[in-house]
């Protein structure tokens, strides 16, 4: 696994954190192995551009090959012929984002994929996605996570203008994280000009 990862040299330095933790927990509890891969593949298929953590600076095209690298390296772990796969992955990575993503998803096991697609077909309007885990807020206390996402959204709106599509994901994040009561209160405070945060 490490071999193929170095061969690819993942462009995102952030990819790291959660990856390391994932391996650690897998080694503790092999029971979780299948469910862990599920959301990864699901999030990759459905919301490939949205998986990266850092807000505006990271391009979406960078996120896709990184996720693909993660998955394909996982898959290559299972197969004994690691060396034969690593170069092909590297070639794919060089050639572009889209083929790499395809490669990654096609390598994930069949039943997972079919399960996800089935769910997606049955209920097109319900996507199982939410605010991702943020490495800035690794603790149990997520109050600041919610607050930060709220501020990020309103700063984004202030910078890009009302209704800018790139701000939508921040709106989704803070709505997922913050209790409705808090949002109502903050909206009121913003209208009155008494909002305590840096907007």
């Amino acid at each position: 696994m490490a071999e193929s990862a170095t061969a690819k040299s993942p462009s995102l330095s952030e990819q790291y954190l959660l990856k390391g933790k994932e391996e650690k927990l897998e080694s503790i509890k092999p029971v979780e192995e299948t469910p862990i891969e599920n959301p990864v593949s699901a999030s990759e298929e459905e919301v490939a551009p949205k998986t990266e953590e850092t807000p505006v600076s990271v391009e979406s095209s960078e996120g896709a090959p990184a996720a693909a690298a993660e998955e394909s390296s996982e898959a290559s772990d299972a197969t004994a012929v690691e060396s034969s796969e690593a170069p092909t992955d590297a070639d794919e990575g060089v050639s572009g984002a889209a083929p790499a993503a395809n490669e990654g998803s096609s390598e994930s096991t069949e039943e997972e994929k079919s399960g996800d697609e089935e769910a997606a077909e049955e209920t097109p309007e319900i996507k199982l996605e939410t605010a991702p885990a943020d490495f800035r807020f690794p603790t149990t206390n997520q109050s600041r996570h919610c607050f930060t996402r709220y501020i990020e959204y309103h700063r984004c709106v202030a910078a890009k203008g009302e209704g800018a599509p790139e701000c939508d994901k921040f709106a989704k994040y803070y709505r997922s994280l913050c209790p409705g009561e808090w949002i109502d209160r903050w909206n009121e405070q913003r209208e009155n000009g008494t909002f305590p945060g840096p907007l």
């Binding site: 959660l18 503790i28 979780e32 959301p39 885990a133």
Partner: peptide, 11 residues
């Protein structure tokens, strides 16, 4: 391991 958020939650 209880504290850790291993993967992005779905919901």
């Amino acid at each position: 391991s209880m504290d850790e958020v291993v993967v992005d939650p779905a919901i």
